[in-house]
């Protein structure tokens, strides 16, 4: 049986992890590779690396990091952040990334999704969508890390993105992100039932029960960052708990 996935997300700047961690046994807490190796050993099902570097050196630094991750890690990983061309993606895939995620650049140039799917296959194209609910009750797409609002509905964009060739949707609710009050069940459920590809829910996971709620018939995978980095939730304990809630999990890594 296909299991649900637990995905830690690491924010990267200039090749280093941005947020601190509580892992005492890390030789170098700022090294994404060290942290990734720990998560892989703990049973994380996948990893996401989100690069927030803004400098011109970005592409080279990121490609070097991806190469070091691929050398060390034996589970799949996705790389995102500022990817805007077929060449950007080729560089990252050539260095060992399994998937890439695109967000603002795909919204501004939807053809990019078609190009990437045709060139590399849908399986490596993750469409990341940041969304927020407005007073009219509708969920809208936000760009540039949530700083820029659009008038496009989240569901419409998800459907279009999948039609163009996205193989997965990484859906972040800005209303829930950082709150630790649970994932956005409503919009995640709506998107999940309207698109045929897997949905990764992101934003709001603060307790094991939140993961159970979103993975039980709504999302295919759940992503979180700080609750894992600061040891508030341990991945082995979380997966054991979810398994006890009859959510299919890969328990022995």
């Amino acid at each position: 049986m296909l299991t649900k996935r637990i995905i830690p997300c690491l924010d990267i700047k200039n090749g280093r992890t941005v947020k601190g961690t509580n892992f005492v046994d890390l030789r170098d807490a700022g090294d994404p590779v060290e942290l990734a190796a720990i998560y892989a050993a703990q049973g994380a099902d996948e990893l996401v690396f989100l690069d927030i570097t803004a400098t011109n050196e970005k592409r080279k630094t990121l490609a070097e990091l991806v190469d070091r991750i691929a050398q060390r890690i034996n589970i799949p990983f996705t790389v995102g952040g500022g990817i805007s061309s077929v060449e950007d993606v080729r560089l990252l895939l050539d260095h060992g990334a399994d998937k890439i995620s695109i967000n603002t650049s795909a919204f501004k140039n939807p053809n990019l999704i078609d190009q990437l799917a045709a060139e590399f296959g849908s399986q490596c194209v993750v469409l990341a969508i940041d969304t927020k609910q407005h007073d009219d009750g509708e969920w809208y797409v936000y760009l540039n890390g949530g700083r820029v609002a659009t008038e496009t509905r989240c569901l419409d964009w998800a459907i279009e993105g999948v039609k163009r060739g996205a193989g997965e949707i990484l859906l972040t609710s800005m209303d829930h992100d950082g709150t630790k009050s649970g994932f956005a069940k409503e919009i995640t459920g709506i998107v999940s039932t309207h698109v045929p590809v897997p949905i990764i829910a992101s934003g709001g996971g603060g307790e094991p029960k939140h993961f159970a709620e979103i993975l039980n018939g709504i999302a295919d995978a759940a992503l979180a960052a700080s609750v894992f980095h600061f040891g508030e939730i341990s991945i082995p304990d979380l997966k054991k708990y979810l398994s006890e809630q009859n959510i299919p999990m890969r328990l022995n890594s």
Partner: peptide, 13 residues
Amino acid sequence: YSSIKIPQIGWNT
């Protein structure tokens, strides 16, 4: 079923 997604992505036995 809409709950069965295609492609299959993830860990299966």
